[in-house]
Write a protein that binds this DNA or RNA. Structure first.
Lengths: 338, 338
DNA sequence: TCGTGTCTTGAGAGCGCTCTCAGGCCGATT
DNA sequence: AATCGGCCTGAGAGCGCTCTCAAGACACGA
């Protein structure tokens, strides 16, 4: 057993050194206003001198709060561990917001199901965290609903595929996709294909829906291939599309990574971008500026999504009522690929 | 104040329902052997029936352990939030290992210095975690040493630039770089340049050192540009190198992302790879297979590094003596770019 | 002078758990 | 038959903190 930290000063020590009661010391440490200035100073000095840091466990025990929020990510999600920095950007936003609120971020990876799934559920419902953020869920994952039902404040990133009251933060994927496709049509493209995202995730489903609706509005036939948000799948899907319809003159990819893969496939098939085929991506990741040619894409504020989702769960944990759905704005960034 | 979880069953409730004392219930829950089988069963039934989950705060308070490990990452590190999935892969490894040990992962981002730096230090030394993993530190960061001195078990990913006893896990960057350069020289390349990583990080420094040493062994002059591990910096550095020495016929980039940027710059400058210029990267990220042409690169086992560093910190926290330096093997993956 | 109200401080209970220690039981040894 | 030793169980202290409640101090108006 490690003894390090065993001899950390307690509030009792601080109180003693400052010549006050433990209660008063506690008040100062927690920023209560009703403490005489000279006493407050004495306590603060003692805190400084002893290097006192409150024991979180003891505090949690009585306050019933843990000051930490779980961030649950599906380990198998391609976005999380592919060459897509989506994951990192979301975490960054969450982290920034939690830090500002002095909360801790407990990261939990969860496999497709099985033991780690239960583990997360037990942990979160076990009162170890004040709330949970769930992102990149696949299919009809029951976790959000279960946690929510167990009284844990939960906010998701992305619409749930189950009908459920769990609040979420997202962009309007359908609308954004529609805008992207309209841009292609407006610039004279006739045969617009799409490389859709995985159809067990709301982002994949809704972007495809937006594509379809825009195509329908323009009385055009849909040309669809499905990928999983990764570069490789994008390249593969692009090849399929070219085989299906060699005449296509535009493609909307549901992620920048897939768009990048598509660019490669197009190049290998001797198509020039944007001359022969226009390409629009989705995300506006950093590398979108550096593809050949630079990628026209739908920007979504990924870090902001992280911040917002964190803010919402904090509000929920504080007992506030929050908006069940919060959609952040997207923007079509026009570069050279379309 | 949220009341959720307020009425969670306590050990007392379990004990009562099972008709035993709290002490015995505790023994069962913690897997003590000296409990009669029929009593153990009664307790387990009660646990099940009530859905009992131990209160971590209460447990920590007495055991002085928190069962959680901090993962500290420098927020500004380009590797963490660029298009480089390095971050995600390390986290994945750490997460896998901690999960197996039933520990929690507390993620902390730290800015270049200032308040968030102090916050991490206070938090970690404040007994909130049983240990800390620090990775991607820049320059002579005092954090590892400080935490270590405060009695917190610390393991770093990557050699420290300060002289310090803090143990670390890494690959032999210098040696790996040397191998990469030797491969280029062995295949007949004469003018081998390098795109080095940031010179305030050990990975950047050591890989450059390896390059230099290999070049020296072959009595060749070094041709060096420095990047920051990102694609953009790689492209920029490549352009500089081409300007410096239009005759160069090979380049060793200290990361795959930079190598990818270099490939683009080479293409834009009309150089064929590998015919005119051979390119070797470092990391073997997933996308290295899909570059044009596929990238020859030094594979380092990133997820394994995460696992190992986690394992080490757990052993340290358990009071074991651990190896101060642990180097994992690398391997040169030959594809088409060199 | 006394009562009333306001504000600051201290005493102490108790959050849920672990762990020591002592007591009780039972079989084995003398 | 008496004693010993080993094993299991329960009682209870205490981890460090917050927060309620009451007491003390003081000012003010009656």
């Amino acid at each position: 057993m490690v003894m390090s930290g065993r001899d950390r000063p307690t509030l009792e020590n601080v109180a003693q050194r400052a010549g006050v009661s433990r209660a008063t010391a506690s008040r100062v440490v927690n920023g209560s206003t009703s403490v005489a200035p000279h006493i407050r100073d004495k306590v603060l000095n003692a805190v400084d001198a002893l290097g006192y840091v409150p024991n979180q466990a003891a505090r949690s025990l009585v306050t019933q709060r843990t000051d930490s929020i779980a961030l649950v990510a599906s380990e198998t999600t391609s976005r999380v561990f592919s060459d897509d920095p989506f994951f990192a950007a979301v975490i960054r936003g969450v982290s920034l917001e939690l830090e500002a609120a002095d909360k801790q971020l407990v990261l939990m990876m969860v496999g497709p199901s099985g033991p780690s799934h239960d583990r997360v559920e037990r942990y979160a419902t076990g009162g170890h965290v004040d709330g949970a953020i769930i992102f990149s869920m696949h299919g009809a994952d029951p976790l959000p609903e279960r946690l929510s039902r167990a009284g844990v404040p939960v906010v998701c990133n992305g619409r749930l595929l189950t009908q459920s009251q769990v609040p979420y933060v997202d962009v309007d994927n359908e609308d954004a996709a529609r805008a992207a496709v309209h841009h292609l049509l407006d610039t004279g493209r006739r045969r617009v294909a799409t490389i859709a995202g995985p159809q067990d995730m709301s982002a994949g489903i809704d972007r495809l829906k937006g594509y379809r609706s825009a195509m329908q509005d323009a009385s055009r036939r849909s040309i669809v291939a499905v990928g999983d948000f990764t570069r490789q799948s994008g390249a593969l899907a692009m090849s399929q599309l070219l085989a299906d319809d060699p005449q296509l003159d535009a493609v909307f990819a549901a992620s920048d990574a897939m768009a990048d893969g598509a660019l490669r496939a197009l190049r290998q098939n001797g198509r020039r971008v944007p001359d022969d085929v226009a390409v629009v991506g989705f995300d506006d990741m950093e590398f979108a500026r550096d593809t050949e040619p630079p990628l026209t894409t739908v920007r979504q504020p990924i870090t902001d999504i992280g911040r917002t989702v964190a803010r919402q769960v904090l509000r929920m944990a504080a007992g506030e009522q929050i908006e069940p759905v919060l959609l952040l704005p997207t923007e079509l960034i026009k570069r050279e690929s379309a």
